[in-house]
Structures are given as C-alpha cells and as structure tokens.
C-alpha cells in the first residue's frame, strides 16, 4: 500500500448546504436516476430554541481499511495499490448489498442494473469519464464556498479525515440514509 492516498477533506464551516456538489456529480458522471454518489446530509445541533443545523457532504471515503471489501464475497471491490482508490468491478458484483450494510457511511448505491456503484474520485481512468487533468473533480470544483478538497495525503492524515467524517455522519438523522 502506498504511503500517500487520495482523500477528500470536507470543511464543515465552509459548507452552506447548497447541494451543488451532489448534483454536479450526477450531471458530470451521468448517474442513473434514484442514485447518488455524493450526498449532502443535514445535521441538527441542539434542541429548540437553541438549535442550529449544519451538514456534511459525503461520497465514498475510499477508506484506509474498507469495510466493504471485507464483506464482499465475490471480490468485486478492490483498493488500488498506487493511490488507495476503492473501485468496483461490476462484472463480479452479484448485487447482494452486503457492502451497503457494512459501510459506516451507507455509501454503496444500486442503480438500474442492480450492481454496486459509487464515487471513483473521477480518477478511475475508465473510458468515458470526463478528463480532470487540469482541475479538481466536479463536486470539488463547483463548490461556491470551497468546502471540499481532494488531495493526496499521508495515510495517517487520511485516517483522521475518516474519523472526523464518522463523527459528522453519526450526528445526522437516521431516516436520511435510506
């Protein structure tokens, strides 16, 4: 495993909950209806009247130690050695949804063909995927207030990001995850 891995940084204090990243991902990647590779989730803080809200913008975290890979019986999911990107081979996926149950962020999505799909960081190198040679991927570049960053980071930093995201995510409402 390479010491440096790609990872998203989400700056909660910059996010204005506009959902631009979510829809940018859909249009730029031409995603099926009913499926979201990136979601903006609302988080309540406090109780009325001392209550505010914040949000988290989440896609696949491309975990340091992916839970989804552990539970996948067909070996359809893999973590790329060179850069840590977690990729799905849909030909091997049987659509059992074990990865969805295992994923702490409820990331795996199942579109019309029933196989697992999710964020590939727009770096998968697959044909037909827009070229971001010059720029960050659409979710990152569209953000009006620069709340998202994608960068190559040391494994230790990446683990910190994952931990922080877990905290955000667990604060959000249960029903938003379905």
């Amino acid at each position: 495993m390479s010491a440096e891995q790609w990872g998203f940084i989400f700056k909660q204090e910059n996010c204005i909950q506009c959902h631009g990243c979510e829809v940018a991902c859909k249009t730029w990647r031409g995603i099926d209806l009913g499926v979201s590779w990136r979601r903006v989730i609302n988080i309540w803080n406090g109780e009325y009247p001392h209550i505010t809200c914040s949000s988290t913008s989440i896609s696949c975290m491309h975990c340091s130690e992916p839970y989804c890979i552990d539970v996948c019986t067909t070996g359809a999911i893999s973590k790329r050695d060179t850069d840590g990107i977690v990729l799905v081979d849909t030909k091997q996926c049987v659509g059992c949804r074990a990865c969805y149950d295992a994923c702490p962020y409820k990331v795996p999505q199942f579109g019309l063909d029933g196989t697992m799909q999710k964020c590939d960081m727009c770096l998968s190198g697959k044909p037909g995927i827009p070229d971001f040679t010059q720029n960050a991927p659409p979710c990152v570049s569209t953000c009006p207030t620069k709340a998202l960053v994608l960068k190559k980071m040391p494994a230790s930093e990446k683990k910190e990001m994952e931990k922080a995201m877990k905290v955000f995510f667990n604060q959000s409402d249960e029903y938003q995850h379905v």
């Binding site: 770096l123 190198g125 995927i129 971001f132 040679t133 010059q134 720029n135 960050a136 570049s141």
Partner: peptide
C-alpha cells in the same frame, strides 16, 4: 493510472 490530475486541487472550475 491514466488520468492524473496534474496541477489539480486549485479548487476551482474552468
């Protein structure tokens, strides 16, 4: 990997 985001991460559009 075929598609490396060269100077990447200037966090902008086009």
């Amino acid at each position: 990997m075929t598609k490396q985001p060269g100077q990447a991460f200037k966090n902008c559009a086009l």
